[in-house]
């Protein structure tokens, strides 16, 4: 007669501890789906550009004066958000608040600069397929940045309310993960719209 196998678990964490929790997986799937969305947007750019007539690029040498510093600003904000997360981990609330608040402000700065970047364009949404792609792709990204700022603000507020501890902080880690994603995606958008023309794509 065979005996009954019965899982005899050790001490188990109750609810999410640290990053360990299914919520983190949930945000992971969200990020995967959003990444796919951006991949299709960029696919649309390359597909349209590859088949287009010469002169399709409205800006064969996209100005980097605003875009490059802005990119650095956004990437740096990722770092700052990470510092905030460390703050929660090390029980340094001020550091955490500075991190999340700082990242949110830097994100806002990014949005503002991007707004000027848009205003400086000689073309509008409906000028041509290039223009539509440019504005809609960057627009999608800005929308994500704005959502990300909302998340950072929420985390900021909750940290201020002293909700989190090194153990109970899944919300923080998941939110910061999302922010990293938003920043990383920009790198791809930036490379596509601001760098590939210099490499010869679409000229």
């Amino acid at each position: 007669m065979s005996e009954t196998a019965l899982a005899q678990p050790e001490k188990l964490p109750v609810g999410p501890i640290g990053r360990h929790g299914i919520g983190y997986w949930g945000v992971g799937t969200l990020v995967a789906s959003e990444a796919a969305l951006f991949a299709y947007l960029l696919f649309a750019y390359f597909y349209t550009g590859a088949a287009a007539q010469p002169g399709w690029l409205l800006e064969p040498a996209p100005p980097l004066k605003l875009a490059l510093p802005n990119t650095i600003l956004l990437l740096a904000s990722s770092l700052v958000a990470w510092v905030g997360e460390r703050g929660v981990l090390d029980r340094r609330r001020w550091q955490a608040l500075l991190g999340f608040g700082g990242a949110a402000i830097m994100g806002t700065g990014f949005v503002v600069v991007q707004w000027f970047e848009w205003k400086a364009k000689a073309y509008g949404l409906g000028t041509s397929s290039y223009a539509s792609l440019y504005f809609v792709t960057t627009g999608f990204h800005i929308a994500h940045v704005i959502v990300g700022i909302g998340v950072l603000v929420a985390i900021f507020a909750w940290t201020a309310l002293d909700y989190f501890s090194p153990r109970r902080r899944l919300t923080v880690s998941a939110g910061v993960l999302y922010w990293h994603f938003v920043d990383l995606v920009w790198l791809f958008v930036f490379a596509t719209y601001y760098v590939t023309p210099y490499l010869g794509f679409g000229r």
């Binding site: 299709y40 696919f43 649309a44 597909y47 349209t48 088949a51 287009a52 007539q53 399709w56 949404l125 409906g126 000028t127 041509s128 397929s129 290039y130 223009a131 539509s132 792609l133 504005f135 809609v136």
Partner: peptide
């Protein structure tokens, strides 16, 4: 909103729709 993703008149690609749809 007058964008031109799929409109050949504005440099868009009707086939882009088909690719996105069937992907």
């Amino acid at each position: 909103f007058g964008t031109h993703f799929f409109d050949p008149g504005g440099g868009g690609q009707p086939l882009l729709w088909q690719h996105l749809f069937w992907i």
